[in-house]
Design a protein around this nucleic acid. Structure first.
Lengths: 112, 112
DNA sequence: ATAATATATGAGTGTAATCGAATATAATCA
DNA sequence: TGATTATATTCGATTACACTCATATATTAT
């Protein structure tokens, strides 16, 4: 069932933290690794799971793979997406991650 | 993280099917067993998981335990609940279960 | 008191999911 | 070409999950 696949993909703290970051725009794998302090293989795996559920899409640009939220998914699951948005905007863990994202973006232009 | 607990509790087909039935009102364990054709221990365990996530509550009435959706959860997670409601109202599997619920209610007053 | 019914839970099993470390692959750069 | 970087994937270990069968507990009915 599609709904189960979506909910399973969302039901993981690391994947929710990734999604939280992607709300602010596309990111490559190594940026996600650095900001969330998770291993490379883990980041890649979680992104793959979100992609397989249709929640995010990716685009390869030279050696980097940029992941972003799938706008079709957002349209098709607007209420769910609004719920997550609202939850993340009011949760300290997610806000902390967004702060780290901002610092990361201010300090570095490229990856690693 | 509370959100992960909620999403994990929802990320299972049997539990979603139970929740779908409970949208129409409270039910005891043996009614759920019969309508969804799942084993008694399975029904009980899934209900327990939904209860631990705060999604449902229960009330013991003589030998029966009636489970129902937790109105506080609905208020606190309105967008998520609306999303699920909408999804279930448009999914044939869930609609089929509701049909079975209706037939069950028409044919029997008590449990088993 | 005994039997029957409703529910919860323990034990065991098989399968899913998660993770880190290592390796494979592809692209870039010197 | 050879070294470096970014990403995906494989492997092995560990843990979590869902399920069935059997048992325990509580309540009701006879």
């Amino acid at each position: 069932m599609v709904l189960v696949v979506i909910l399973k993909a969302l039901a993981d703290e690391n994947r929710l933290r990734i999604l939280n970051l992607l709300r602010k725009g596309e990111l490559c794998v190594c940026e996600i690794e650095a900001i969330l302090e998770i291993t490379q293989s883990n980041a890649s795996r979680h992104l793959n799971k979100l992609k397989n559920a249709g929640i995010i899409t990716y685009e390869k640009k030279s050696q980097w793979v940029y992941y972003k939220i799938n706008e079709t998914f957002v349209k098709d699951n607007a209420l769910l997406f609004d719920y997550l948005n609202n939850y993340m905007d009011n949760n300290s863990q997610f806000l902390k991650d967004l702060q780290r994202l901002k610092e990361y973006k201010n300090n570095r232009i490229t990856c690693a």
